[in-house]
Design a protein around this nucleic acid. Sequence first.
RNA 1: GGUCCCAUCGUUUAGCGGCCUAGGACACCGCCCUCUCACGGCGGCAGCAGGGGUUCAAAUCCCCUUGGGAUCACCA
Length: 504
Amino acid sequence: MSSLITAPFSTATGADVKVRFCPSPTGLPHVGLIRTALFNWAYARHTGGSFLFRIEDTDAERDSEESFDMILDALGWLGLTWDEGVNVGGPAEPYRQSERSHIYLDVIEKLKASGHIYESYLTGEEIDVRNKAAGRAVQLGYDNSERDLTEEQKAAYRTEGRSPALRLRVPETDITFTDLVRGEITFPAGSFPDFVVVRPNGQPLYTLVNPVDDALMGVTHVLRGEDLLSSTPRQIALYNAMYEAGITKFIPQFGHLPYVMGEGTKKLSKRDPEANLFHHRDRGFIPEGLLNYLSLLGWGLSADQDIFTMEELVAAFDVKNVNPNPARFDQKKADAINAAHIRLLTLDDFKSRLMPYLQSAGIVGATLSAEEDSILTAVAPLIQERLVVLSEAPDLVSFLFKTADEIAIEDDAKAGLPENTVEVLIAAISALEKLAEAEFKTETVQAALQAALIDELGLKPRVAFGPLRTGISGRRISPPLFESMEILGKAETITRLRAFAVAA
RNA sequence: GGUCCCAUCGUUUAGCGGCCUAGGACACCGCCCUCUCACGGCGGCAGCAGGGGUUCAAAUCCCCUUGGGAUCACCA
């Protein structure tokens, strides 16, 4: 074996590109994780290459099936489809690391045989003691002192009942690679010691299985979070060992995506609610809006367009244009992007996306009655441009699905009422009563009220219509008034205004 | 502490030596539209972290400083 890096880097650029998403199923799907999935997906779709999905569940302590299901749920909701991997299959099955132990065993044997990994019997405490005795900083870690243990020394350790961990013999050379988003990066020789790849109990660690799987699965581009940047030279060392042992033909290209920050200068923590992808779905983000915003975390379509479709993203996306500096998750910007995408929806599409939110708020039933459907059809266009997130819809439209006696007047609506509210209501009721049932339409209602309240009583529109709005909806803010009255119909409108006049 | 990464308006981003009197978007503030809230339109506020170089010319290239962040596990 050599002490240099002799393996070549992947030269894939087109349909031969293979990227992957390989989360470990712990906890809730984090928006940063999903952004990573998105960029990998987009790069595969852009290049015409393939997108692989693997699960890294080698940590039985922390992994959970619920978390695994949530990741699947998230990818499915967002439409990030993969070509190879979990639930899809492919040439490198299986795609869950927990089912690949025999494969790692084989690789470990080859690496042992080629002399790239060696037995290490020292415990962490013993290493600290050695460092202190040698006047070496404890933080420097292992001192590579067991590289050339004799068979006698190993036998002696074993007699003590010890089992060895396995460490990779790290080449004593600078390690340089060209990061797709950051350019050339060099880690000087000696930046890190020989590291453990297999536990004394035979369990391989992430440091081994991640590169092994990428190598065996033919991954050409590793696009991942910046937190993995400093482990990249270690992985390159391992790739080189695998190359020399005949296990792989190349080292993938690496691109380290910037962090997703929360408020201040800290990484968006798993504890922050906005870190949870499903928090946004529950609030009523639509996939188009969330995906668009997430893609803006470190990337941009062009200098003057930040609302775009996934097709546009795929056509334009290249890792090379990803920004190296950390991106802050800005809820207000995200909301604005989502609102823009809601407005872009066709009316039918918008209606159907509203359904789950109306249903879970108990405003409509599991299946829509004919009456509910016609109300929804009528009100949808009125609220489409008013929503930032879909979960705002129930509060805005619930009054249309209720009966007069179910309307409660909200406090802020009461506070905004003018002195002459009752007078306004009486005048409005008498004007509306003159309209025939059949002509109770937006335009005629508006004309009648305009004439009675603005022209005759000389009221300001705000004073005239405020009480009516509150009367029919119980709220200070509502969808457009006259349209709402048309939806309610003459009888219901007047009933509500009367009831409100009595109460006021 | 060792090693590595990052640095343009409040936020995000354009800029890859002259097109920069630094452009856009979100946020914010006015005004217009208007039955509320929105949408839409118009206008405004606001930035190259600091210092040295290189160059006829630097936001852009180099160095240093400062500030932020990551990583140094028998976690992933």
